[in-house]
Design a protein around this nucleic acid. Structure first.
Length: 815
RNA sequence: GGGCGAGUGGCGGAAUUGGCAGACGCGCAGGAUUCAGGUUCCUGUGUCCGAAAGGACGUGGGGGUUCAACUCCCCCCUCGCCCACCA
């Protein structure tokens, strides 16, 4: 029996598992096993794996292995989300091609994953920057385009005038370009969008099907979609006759309207300013505000506004109120215009105070009276209608439907629903992404690249440094093409797609990763999907998962799949932080993964991380492993398991009933724990079992069954150590990872003695060992006969006895 | 400002969902092994009183329900995350 030496054991099994092709998912239709799709969020190849990967993938791998041992045909694939800005920026910084940098990182991560012993089916490996992959990303774009779900429109973007490039919001630091410090301006650009808003209601409704998703993710998705019910009300501009709609959730407050406001981007603003004789001031305001970067809008004087000199007619009472343009109204939400009800909306209240506008209370809290002169904030709760003509005296919630009915009868409005969700801007003026497969023809406009001409290859010989437009626009050979419809000279679209597009469908591709004829084989997808278990970071709780759900519904509408939700169960691992802060290179607190693995072993890393706390919680590495030189506790435990199992293997003596009971109880508990991702608790139970086996051996007993079960239960959590013990020490010819998960005998798993707790007035005064089937009567007798109970009761009289056989008796005294 | 979640020893965390609070591990202390450090093994380890037996207190704070509360209800404090001018 050798000393536990993971650096010798682990690499040996990496190559052995390769030879035995242990983790290949079976495509054999005759395979009787139920299938299980265990998906881990794929990796972004920016450098080698770090501790965050270790946590996510240790959990995902444990589930995949556990389900395989429980008799499932498991699909556990891996790939890389390989397009995007970090690769481009790193490449620019190092002067190498993004492709080179990306594939080098992929190779490094792949090799680290193998060293970690992840149970991936490597035959399905993919990267989104492979032409064989993005060909189908482009195909999907064309499908959306054909259905009218991909369209172009002009939208404002952050623009750096010096670098001549569009910046993501994260690249704008305090209103300036993060690279050169130049103040950023707003610039309107024609961009591609996916019409995800068409699916807003379905995305919201189907959230109810996601029973096994974390509650907080469901909440975030709901809030992000942001459905509001209310009414659309038509106002007329007195001076010009223009009809303008507003959206409001409070049509009951229509009688409280004292002004009207347009967003600065609203198309009517300049026309109305001219009509009102304020064109000059309006233009000055618009120019100034539009030069302000989007992220600075919040910092602008939020209650600034300009009266346009025209008036809006309130449809319910014919009153004319002044019309303003103000930055606090957003063009992107509702209709880009709002009615101002200062008494009952806080933002309107502040605007009215800042601009000396009247405040009119039309909802009074019951039994109170708000006076506009003395109000310090808007009253936005329920109440009784006042000053509202026919609605006076009605409670405000009930009055809403009455107002809507009235508006509808009069043709001045209707019930309406508004969503917070916006269409998805997917075009990027960047090099390292999937080219948008569209050709712009002077005659035929936007023409999709025909399917047999996909992929539109990303050319290698491009000056990919940013500068004004998409780098692809500088490549004449790429840009100049002929129109697929008429053959006339035309120009390729030079934008690339947001990487979130690439990652919205990769789990479909895993089902038939080498299909050269289609994005995925519908039969393979029908067999494997939906995904049974998805594991990944909570930072993707909104965008990525929403996009995945959107794509799935589009594919359903295309008739390609028969389900509408892609992921049945979702689990978010916590972050690994250091000293209370997230790890980052700039803080210099990054802990590398592979040096730890090389020194202590992958199994030690896995157990350390999984044992540190609940899977969903953050782990502070500084608290878990404060001294990198000291032997980690997980390593010491695995060493004890190694020694203990080795000793048990050579012991012929019979096992005690006590140990057998303990073994079966542990199987029961650990099985439940692994089903619920409670790895930390599972490991603690295995540690207790290890200690029990140790004691049994020390007492001269055998421990064959216990040792075997321990090794099997260890397999999902510490796959190398378990394999070494199973095959080498316990002498099994087949891998532990192909063995059947141990089952427990319910009779044995039940304790044959339980502790009856004896309390007096709720305080523990004695304990007795009893049979689990002990009668209530016997418990009562034991309690009354107990010396500890008698001492505690003393001279007081006993009022009652609460008996919960076989757990507890509470003796309640009088007084 | 809105929404969600969490506060348990020196530390990470358990607690069959209302029934022995602190499992398991880290750390620390003492002992054994070792030339020594590390490793390994044994013992102890919530706080306070006590030599011990035993007792009192104890799950952020305050109140409540209950025979019994970390767990359920109300108020407050602190921290974390998400969304933040969404009409």
């Amino acid at each position: 029996m050798r000393r536990y030496d993971p650096t010798e054991i682990e690499p040996r099994w990496v190559s052995r598992w390769d030879e035995e092709d242990l983790y290949r998912a079976s495509e054999d239709p005759a395979d009787p096993r139920p299938r299980f799709y265990a998906l881990d969020m794929f990796s972004y190849p920016s450098g080698d794996l770090h501790l965050g990967h270790a946590e996510a993938f240790s959990g995902g791998d444990a589930v995949a292995r556990f389900m395989a041992m429980r008799g499932h045909n498991v699909l556990h694939p891996i790939g890389w989300d390989a397009f995007g800005l970090p690769a481009e920026n790193a490449a620019i910084k190092r002067g190498i091609h993004p492709k080179e940098w990306t594939y080098a990182n992929i190779e490094q991560q792949a090799s680290s994953f193998r060293r970690m012993g992840m149970s991936f089916d490597w035959t399905r490996r993919l990267a989104t920057c492979d032409p064989e992959y993005y060909r189908w990303t482009q195909w999907l774009f064309v499908k959306l385009f054909e259905r009218g779900l991909a369209y172009r429109k002009t939208a404002p973007a952050n623009w750096c005038p010096k670098d001549q490039t569009v910046l993501a919001n994260e690249q704008v630091i305090a209103g300036a370009c993060e690279r050169c410090g130049t103040p950023v301006v707003r610039k309107d650009l024609t961009q591609w969008f996916f019409k995800i808003t068409d699916y807003a209601q379905r995305l919201l409704d189907d959230v109810d099907e996601l029973a096994d998703w974390p509650e907080r993710v469901i909440t975030m998705q709901r809030n992000w979609i942001g459905r509001s019910e209310g009414a659309e009300v038509t106002f007329q501009i007195a001076e010009t006759g223009d009809e303008v709609e507003v959206f409001t959730t409070r049509p009951d407050t229509l009688w409280g309207v004292t002004f009207f406001v347009f967003a600065i981007e609203h198309p009517l603003v300049m026309k109305l300013a001219e009509a009102g004789g304020t064109a000059e001031q309006a233009k000055a305001l618009l120019d100034r505000l539009q030069a302000t970067p989007l992220t600075n809008r919040e910092q602008a004087d939020s209650r600034e506004g300009l009266p346009l000199g025209v008036h809006a007619i309130n449809p319910v009472n014919g009153e004319q109120v002044p019309v303003f343009v103000a930055p606090y109204v957003l063009m992107e939400y509702g209709t880009g215009a709002v009615m101002g009800v200062p008494a009952h909306d806080q933002r309107d209240f502040e605007f009215a105070r800042a601009n000396d506008l009247p405040i009119r209370v039309v909802v009074q809290p019951e039994g109170q009276e708000r006076d506009p002169a003395s109000m310090t904030e808007a009253y936005d709760h329920e109440g009784v209608m006042v000053g509202s003509g026919p609605l006076d005296g009605v409670r405000s919630p009930e009055s809403i439907s009455e107002v809507i009915a009235w508006l509808q009868r009069e043709g001045k409005g209707k019930a309406s629903v508004s969503f917070r969700l916006r269409d998805w801007l997917i075009s990027r003026q960047r090099y390292w992404g999937a080219p948008i497969p569209i050709i712009h023809c002077p005659e035929h406009g936007e023409v999709a690249v025909p399917e047999d001409q996909l992929p539109v290859l990303l050319p290698d010989d491009v000056d990919f440094r940013p500068g004004g437009e998409s780098p692809l626009a500088r490549n004449e050979g790429f840009v100049n093409v002929t129109c697929p419809t008429c053959g006339a000279p035309a120009r390729r679209d030079t934008d690339t797609m947001d990487t979130f597009v690439d990652s919205s469908w990769y789990y479909f591709r895993y089902c038939s990763p080498n299909d050269e004829r289609r994005a995925f084989d519908p039969e393979a997808v029908a067999r494997w999907m939906p995904v049974d278990q998805y594991v990944g970071g909570v930072e993707h709780a909104i965008l990525h998962l929403l996009y995945c759900r959107f794509f799935t519904k589009v594919l359903y509408d295309l008739g390609l799949i028969a389900f509408t939700e892609p992921m049945l169960r979702l689990m978010n691992q916590g972050q690994v932080i250091f000293g209370g802060a997230s790890m980052s290179k700039s803080k210099g607190n990054v802990v590398e993964l592979m040096p730890f693995v090389e020194r202590w072993g992958s199994d030690t890393m896995r157990v350390t991380i999984l044992f540190a706390g609940p899977f969903e919680d953050d782990i502070d590495w500084k608290l878990i492993a404060p001294d990198s030189e000291r032997r980690p506790g997980a390593n010491a435990w695995l060493g004890r398991v190694h020694a203990t199992v080795g000793e048990a293997a050579g012991r012929e003596a019979p096992e005690t009933n006590e140990l057998r009971r303990h073994t079966h109880g542990t199987i029961k508990g650990v099985t439940r724990d692994l089903e619920r991702f409670r790895f930390n608790v599972a490991i603690s139970k295995l540690q207790v079992l290890t200690n029990e086996i140790r004691s049994a051996l020390d007492a001269g007993h055998g421990a064959h069954e216990a040792a075997g079960a321990l090794v099997q239960m260890l397999a999902p959590l510490a796959p190398f150590t378990a394999e070494e013990l199973w095959r080498v020490e316990l002498g099994h010819p087949e891998s532990v990872h192909r063995s059947a998960w141990p089952t427990y005998d319910p009779e044995l798993a039940r304790d044959d003695r339980v502790t009856l707790v004896l309390q007096v007035d709720g305080k523990v005064r004695d304990r007795v060992e009893v049979d689990p089937d002990v009668s209530e009567e016997a418990c009562r007798a034991l309690a009354l006969g107990s010396e500890g109970v008698q001492r505690a009761v003393g001279s007081r009289t006993i009022a009652r006895l609460v008996v919960r056989a076989p757990r507890l008796v509470n003796v309640v005294t009088a007084g």
